[in-house]
Simulated assay, not measured.
Amino acid sequence: MFLKNAWYVACTPEEISDRPLGRKICGESMAFYRNVQGNVVALEDFCPHRGAPLSLGFVENGDLVCGYHGLKMDCAGRALSMPGQRVKGFPSIRSFPVIERYGFVWVWPGDPAQADPEKMPHLAWENDPSWAYGGGFFHIRCDYRLMIDNLMDLTHETYVHSSSIGQKEIDEAIPTTVNDGDAVITSRRMEGVIAPSFWKMAMRSNGLPEDVPVDRWQICRFSPPSHVLIEVGVALAGQGGYDAPASSKVSSIVVDFITPETDSTIWYFWGMARRFRPEDAGLTAQIRTGQQKIFSEDLEMLERQQRNLEEWPKRDLLKLNIDAGGVMARKVIERLLADERT
Rank of each mutant, 00 (worst) to 15 (best):
K119Q: 14
S223V: 15
F32T: 04
E118H: 12
L208A: 08
A237E: 01
V87F: 04
K319H: 09
G89I: 11
C11W: 02
I333R: 13
P20F: 00
Y144R: 01
L54A: 00
L3R: 06
P129T: 02
L236C: 14
R188P: 02
G271P: 06
L154H: 15
S162A: 13
H49C: 12
W7N: 14
A76F: 02
K293P: 05
A281M: 09
A52N: 06
N5C: 02
D280E: 05
V232L: 10
I93T: 06
A173V: 12
S95Y: 01
M82E: 08
H161Y: 05
T186Y: 10
S130F: 11
I93L: 07
I185V: 10
M201I: 10
L3D: 08
P213G: 00
Y33G: 00
W270R: 05
N5Q: 00
L320K: 12
W131I: 11
S248F: 08
Y144P: 05
H69M: 02
D153Q: 05
A246E: 08
F2S: 12
R34E: 09
A237W: 00
M82D: 03
G192M: 04
T176I: 14
L320F: 12
R307Y: 12
E100Y: 02
E310W: 07
S55V: 00
P245V: 05
I266M: 10
D149K: 10
E279P: 03
F96L: 08
T265S: 03
Y33P: 04
G136I: 01
L337N: 00
L43K: 04
V36N: 04
P209W: 03
L71H: 03
E28A: 10
I230Y: 10
P213A: 00
I148R: 09
T186P: 14
L123R: 05
E100V: 00
T342R: 15
S296T: 11
L336Q: 01
D323K: 14
G326V: 00
I148S: 03
P53D: 07
F138P: 01
V59L: 13
G84R: 03
T186M: 04
D182M: 08
V250M: 03
D149E: 09
G103W: 02
D128G: 06
P83S: 03
S248D: 11
Q85R: 03
A31I: 05
D211C: 03
W125S: 10
I266Q: 03
R188M: 15
D180H: 10
I253S: 09
M190H: 06
P224H: 00
K249E: 08
V234Y: 06
A52W: 12
G240L: 09
T176D: 09
V105Y: 01
G51Q: 04
T158Y: 13
L64D: 01
R304E: 14
